[in-house]
Design a protein around this nucleic acid. Structure first.
Lengths: 116, 116
DNA sequence: TTGTAATATTCAAATACCTTTATATTTTCA
DNA sequence: TGAAAATATAAAGGTATTTGAATATTACAA
């Protein structure tokens, strides 16, 4: 707990704990991608993508290569994908189950209706 | 990104992204444990442990069983341990590497010296 | 050089999360 | 019943993350 190791592991998981960053990693399953490409896939603006990439970079989860004015990103350790696969299985096993998901979706729908 | 699925996955990882919760899960590798036992292992006060457990419970990562006045917790899906194993391997593979770790440890030492 | 395209960094406001302390609840037992 | 043990919840203040907008940087080409 005080042990730094657990704190570093927690930070590693924190790096994965963002929807955009998960999508980025999914994109990188098929190999290198430029920021442009990621930006298009994510439908996010340039600077947001860059920010998320910098978080993944700081945690050493991705690394980059510059080619002219473009930068190509790739995942550093393919084992990350195993991790994501297992996370998906846990999802499919219903660990994160319908109850809380539905509750939250519902809540969101309500919010949107209010907004409309 | 807007897709709720990615948000839920992100929340799942967020649930793992805390040192105390990681230690709790490590403890639960050997099976059920009471809150008391976890409290002792973590050297945290009762209510903090309870709060962390409630986060894990809300994300359906652990479940509990009441026996008299005591509550026993266990991990819901053993695949969680596979996930933690892989995370550890990624660590050992140096993905989260020394550079940032040392930088942070250093920074902490500095802070403490300032404080002293 | 100046301009432009691609990417990165910085900043401020909003939100979420942590930590601590205090208080509730539930169960058992005298 | 009333007290005590084990656990849970709530509230408040501090800290960290997110988000969006603005601004820097870098590399290249005209």
């Amino acid at each position: 707990m005080n042990q730094p190791l657990h704190r570093f592991k927690a930070e590693f998981f924190k790096a994965l704990a963002h929807p955009a960053r998960l999508v980025i990693l999914e994109q990188l399953r098929t190999g290198e991608h430029s920021v442009q490409e990621l930006q298009a896939a994510l439908e996010m603006d340039q600077s947001s993508v860059s920010q998320q990439l910098s978080i993944l970079r700081n945690k050493n989860i991705v690394e980059s290569r510059k080619e002219g004015t473009m930068v190509y990103y790739r995942v550093r350790d393919p084992m990350i994908f195993q991790l994501l696969d297992i996370a998906r299985e846990i999802f499919n096993n219903h660990l994160i189950d319908t109850q809380s998901m539905l509750a939250q979706l519902n809540e969101e729908a309500t919010m949107h209706n209010r907004g409309a």
